[in-house]
Design a protein around this nucleic acid. Structure first.
Lengths: 141, 141
DNA sequence: TATTGTTATACTCTATAACTATA
DNA sequence: TATAGTTATAGAGTATAACAATA
């Protein structure tokens, strides 16, 4: 066996766990022909009808240059509808097909989250979730 | 303010934290002209002189097709030395420059890990690290 | 002036397929 | 047959720069 200098680095473990988790989520979402980021955008629109893509980008940490083609793909597939709210921005809502897809995506993501929780020893689960939210809500980049 | 349907999903928080953490690490490593993955490979070689790149790939979860150009870059920069151990595989060791670079990379990564720990409430830190290692060592993909 | 949306471009990590050469 | 290494290619997320149009 080979020595592992990264064995005791929590940050490295965090990275590995996140990559594996995302890869499994992507595999589950191919059934809906959605990427993980596309799925999250659908959920945000579902919960915020009329939201602007700039607002979604700020919420999810996606820069506007990447929101543009993402939203365009969803619109091309008739999953969302763009309606001008003023001259430079559009409100996004789900189409009927988009509602169905968003509902399925939500089910997949909920199952996926439940799987994660299921793999965590019960005694440590609450603390784990607490720390994640603490770290996620820190302003350092 | 806009509703956030992902607020209570630990898996999503995990992803966001991991991305931010990795991006900060990448920013710190530019000084050495190293990507995060290159830095981890250097550390593995430092701790395992003569290791084969296939072994590194298995340890780090990097497929061989991606190890090839990565190792080639490090060799081109004279940070590592490839010595044939048999007809199809080579043992990797650090050059003198590679040792210096690996040492600096280790310092950067240690600092970076320390920063992560510093942002975690003390009471939950041990549980957090425990869970990460539990999840990282599970065989599900 | 600041914001919205867009295009073009690039980097990093990940992955599969197909191949050569060797064990 | 299986393994080591390589090349080519692709997908996904992230990022910056530059721009037009609008507020």
């Amino acid at each position: 066996m080979i020595r592992d200098p990264l064995k005791d680095l929590p940050g490295y473990a965090l990275r590995r766990v996140s990559v594996a988790f995302m890869s499994r989520l992507a595999a589950r979402l191919v059934r809906l022909h959605l990427r993980p980021t596309e799925a999250t955008v659908l959920l945000v629109i579902q919960d915020n009808p009329g939201v602007k893509q700039s607002e979604i980008g700020r919420l999810l940490g996606v820069v506007s240059a990447n929101m543009a083609p993402l939203v365009a793909r969803l619109a091309d597939r008739n999953l969302i509808i763009r309606q001008a709210v003023d001259g430079r921005s559009q409100g996004l809502t789900l189409s009927e097909a988009g509602r169905r897809t968003a509902q399925k995506a939500r089910g997949i993501m909920d199952d996926h989250e439940a799987d994660l929780i299921a793999h965590i020893p019960k005694a440590d689960c609450a603390a784990f979730v607490r720390v994640l939210h603490t770290l996620a809500n820190q302003k350092d980049n």
